[in-house]
Nucleic acid binder design. Sequence first.
DNA 1: AAATCGGGGTT
DNA 2: AACCCAGATTT
Length: 382
Amino acid sequence: MDTNLKKQYFSEELLSWYRKHRRDLPWRRSRNPYHIWISEVMLQQTRVETVIPYFHRFIERFPTMEALAEAPEEDVLKLWEGLGYYSRARNLQGAVREVQERYGGTVPDTLKEISTLKGVGPYTAGAVLSIAYNKPEPAVDGNVMRVLSRYFLIEEDIMKVSTRGIMEKLAKELIPEGAAGDFNQGLMELGAMVCTPRSPHCLTCPVMEHCAAREAGMEEELPVKKKAKPPRPEYRIAALIEGTGPNQGKVLIRQRPQEGLLARMWELPHTDVPFTYSPSEKAHPSIDSIPSSVSILADHLAEETIGIHPERWYMHAEHTFSHIHWDMQVIACSLESSLLPSGSSLLMPSHYQWVDRDTMGQYAFPNVFLKILNRYFAEHSN
DNA sequence: AAATCGGGGTT
DNA sequence: AACCCAGATTT
């Protein structure tokens, strides 16, 4: 079959399939460029079902770009809590402020301008332009690369930058006249609902008849993708420091640095230990079974003027990021003293804070620490 | 081109 | 346990 006919068939069938089968998603209920933009940023590397509650909370708290531009950054981070890739939140607010100042509060409608905004890469630019403004720009994400690699039997490694270029050119050619938004969303919808990574539902696919991978029996082998490196293990020890006196019932937390992993999020004080926990240490934990870790933790906190006295083993926690796996032992501690030279024993460095069950909600935590704190306060609810 | 940057659902 | 998700940025 002629290539151009295959393309025309694909575009027409996909478009009509989408218009019949599209899911009713919150960000599909308007074409507010700001709302579309938020949804696309939240959807980066994140599933639809995960995003939905975050999207509702976000537009309720920040209904307009003006509201988001004027909000304290910590409020934005708190609403992003648990969603991951927290630089997305900071970039989004920074970009919205840029739109307020440089573009008079209107999301730019050209590829050149919108692409200058922080956190708006090739995908997000194309998605916002096509969905909000119906501009014929491609929006190539993982779904689109999977669908196109199968339908056109493209065996290039989709992790390569050059392959992205091939896909974008192809995706742009396929956009039907005047239907960029629906077509691009249809491409992603097909990838999410029908042309899935494993065991694709070819029998219900609107373009199965001319799918090259299907004809070749290759649908399970595509797309070709080089395997990612496994996350490196990191062994860590954390202090759950229980307050006394005026801080009875509270726990000491600290804020992470401005840059890097989990930037500006709050956490339990903890540090890396330069060796692995043996299976017996994981299985039969106690302070005495990991004494060198405990002394490393005490030394680490002493450098931040926090003197601790380890009391008991509390729990084991694991957390996997894309590139790191944390294997963490949590030790309940009492506060020996503040080692600040001149202050009273109640003074703490400014990036430390006492919190209880009611006040911890003011601070944004990564999920691993959220779980530890929620368990602790559930067990210590006087 | 490779590494960094979260967290969780599916199979 | 492997895979991968409506990716962008930095090195």
